Amino acid sequence: MTELNDGALFDAEFGIGHRGSTVPERSGVALSFRGRPSSFSFFGVLQSSVHIAWGRWRSSSKGISGKKYSTAKALDTFPMPDLEDSELKLAAEAYSSLRDECLNEIGIGVTDLFNMVHDPSRMEPLIERFRRVLINLDVAVCKAYGWSDLELFHDYYTQEDLSESDSIRFSISSEAKDQIIKRLSILNRHRYQDEVAAGLNFSKSIGSEKRKPRVRRKTETSSKQPSFDFDGASANDGTYRKAAEQRASYQAGPTHAIVEYMKAHPGWHAKSDIVSAIGITDGQWNAAIAELIADNRIERQGEKRGARYRVVIEGAKE
């Protein structure tokens, strides 16, 4: 069985290729599995329809070819299930083993394999087995979250954000995807709230006359869960939250950090004050503030060194 101790690759379809074996034909984002005690489970979750639904929802469009995967938006914010779940481990190992068998026996790459999986006319026994393993993996991931009630309805569906000539996918129903996104969003929010209560998220202020020097944030062993804003809690919040293990496996993104800081400190602020207070780099600031302004979550007045920023309060800006 392939060892997951060196790394993996996301392609444009969010498929992962082991380093050392056939790599997807599309460009991707390399991810490391080093130091992860349950690497097969981690690998399996990322290959599941659960993560694909979240990843497509959180990632930006890439023309007619689909979505551009963003680790900051799609992976850092993704709340993992219990990676020690025995059924999940077995399903992930079975997926990895059969995928390698398909690649070696048919003599193709990962992209070609999934093209066959998504083609309803391909009924070869090995491809049919692989589809069943995909279904088993999705079911195991959902059970690891405690979602035994969720009906997935695997079938061939049209993916509306793909080109018409390449839009059919063997996947779960749109209703199941909507439920998954809702439940993951609730879980993300609860984990963030728990971290705030435990003092794991920053709450710095700019009270002193002398500004502290900016320092580069170091990677922490226990990182933080980025969160989103939601309209309200579901009656099933406790049910969705209970099953997934509380693992702080993600870093709080600079976008979220900027918004939370400025919500806590109303009024106009210079870039230097914000960057110093929350400890992010200039590069992280530039990417995050451009996104926030485009999303109308932060407003700016002035230009260059005279620019000032404040959070947009709903209903206050015309």
Rank of each mutant, 00 (worst) to 15 (best):
T281R: 13
L292S: 05
I274S: 11
G279R: 12
A277T: 01
H265M: 12
P266M: 10
T255W: 06
I278R: 08
I274G: 07
A287H: 07
N296E: 13
N286W: 01
E260L: 07
R297M: 14
A290T: 14
K271C: 04
N286C: 03
G306H: 10
D273E: 09
R305H: 05
W285R: 04
A257V: 01
D295F: 06
S249H: 10
Y309V: 06
S276W: 01
N286G: 02
I278H: 09
A252N: 10
A294V: 04
L292I: 03
E260K: 11
Y250N: 11
A264L: 12
A290P: 00
G267N: 09
S272H: 04
A277K: 01
Q251W: 08
A294P: 00
Y261V: 09
V259N: 02
A252K: 08
V275H: 00
G283C: 06
W268E: 09
S249A: 14
A294R: 13
H256D: 15
A294T: 12
I298Q: 15
Q284M: 07
V275C: 03
L292G: 03
R300H: 01
H269I: 03
K263F: 04
K263M: 07
L292F: 04
S249N: 14
Y250S: 10
S276V: 00
S249I: 07
V275E: 02
S249Q: 11
A290C: 05
I289A: 02
K304Q: 14
R300M: 12
E291W: 05
K263L: 10
P254G: 15
E291H: 11
K304E: 13
W285C: 05
P266T: 11
V311R: 15
K271L: 06
S276H: 03
I274P: 06
I289E: 01
I293Y: 06
A248E: 06
Y261R: 12
R310F: 08
G306F: 10
Q284H: 06
R300P: 00
G302S: 10
I289V: 12
Y250R: 09
P266V: 11
Q284T: 04
W268F: 14
E291N: 14
G279S: 14
Q284W: 02
